[in-house]
Computed example of a mutant assay.
Amino acid sequence: MRLREDTAADPDRDPVAVVHAALDAGVTMVDTADAYQNEELIGRTIRGRRGEVLLASKFGLVWGAGIAGSFEVRADPAYVQQACEASLRRLDVEVIDLYYLHHRSDTIPIEDTVGAMSDLVTQGKVRALGLSNVTAEDLRRAHAVHPIAALQEQWSVLQRDIETQLVPAAAGLGTVVVAHSPNGHGLMHQVRRTADEQLPSDLRAALEEVAGAHGATPGQVALAWVHHRQQVHDVPVIPLPGTTRVSHLRANVAAADLDLSDDELRRLDPTQAAS
Results as ranks from 00 to 15, higher is better:
132 S>C: 14
177 V>I: 11
81 Q>W: 01
167 V>C: 02
217 T>G: 04
202 D>W: 14
153 E>L: 11
193 R>T: 15
56 A>N: 08
179 A>F: 08
274 A>Y: 04
240 L>V: 14
121 V>G: 06
28 T>F: 00
165 Q>I: 03
79 Y>V: 02
211 A>H: 08
75 A>P: 05
207 L>E: 07
55 L>S: 06
222 A>Q: 05
195 A>E: 14
111 E>P: 00
116 A>V: 02
222 A>L: 10
28 T>H: 10
105 S>T: 07
23 L>R: 09
153 E>A: 12
50 R>Q: 10
192 R>Y: 00
141 R>C: 08
70 S>E: 13
98 L>C: 03
223 L>T: 02
226 V>T: 15
166 L>F: 01
117 M>R: 05
173 L>Y: 11
103 H>Q: 14
22 A>Q: 09
92 D>Q: 13
100 Y>M: 07
60 G>D: 06
97 D>I: 05
49 R>I: 00
93 V>Y: 03
76 D>F: 09
81 Q>R: 13
8 A>F: 03
165 Q>K: 12
77 P>S: 09
108 I>T: 15
244 T>I: 11
63 W>T: 13
48 G>A: 13
224 A>S: 12
73 V>W: 01
70 S>V: 02
6 D>R: 13
219 G>F: 09
264 E>P: 04
162 I>M: 09
36 Y>T: 07
155 W>F: 15
112 D>I: 01
77 P>A: 12
32 T>H: 08
48 G>F: 12
132 S>T: 12
89 R>C: 01
270 P>Q: 06
164 T>D: 14
248 H>K: 03
211 A>M: 04
112 D>F: 00
49 R>K: 07
159 Q>E: 15
133 N>K: 10
3 L>A: 06
212 G>V: 04
116 A>K: 07
144 A>E: 13
10 D>Q: 09
67 I>S: 04
222 A>V: 07
176 V>L: 14
85 E>T: 01
271 T>Q: 13
11 P>N: 07
142 A>K: 10
84 C>F: 04
101 L>V: 06
180 H>R: 14
166 L>P: 01
16 V>M: 00
206 A>D: 02
204 R>P: 02
163 E>G: 01
142 A>F: 09
189 H>E: 12
237 V>P: 01
243 T>G: 08
188 M>A: 06
197 E>S: 10
215 G>I: 12
104 R>A: 15
123 Q>H: 09
182 P>N: 07
193 R>V: 08
32 T>K: 04
271 T>C: 00
110 I>M: 04
156 S>Q: 07
230 Q>R: 15
160 R>Y: 11
12 D>L: 02
1 M>S: 12
179 A>G: 03
146 H>G: 02
190 Q>T: 05
97 D>S: 08
65 A>D: 15
162 I>E: 06
248 H>L: 06
252 N>K: 07
144 A>D: 15
63 W>I: 13
120 L>C: 01
65 A>W: 00
42 I>H: 06
80 V>F: 00
167 V>E: 07
5 E>Y: 00
147 P>D: 11
165 Q>F: 09
256 A>R: 14
38 N>Q: 10
111 E>Y: 12
56 A>V: 08
169 A>W: 04
110 I>P: 05
191 V>R: 11
32 T>A: 05
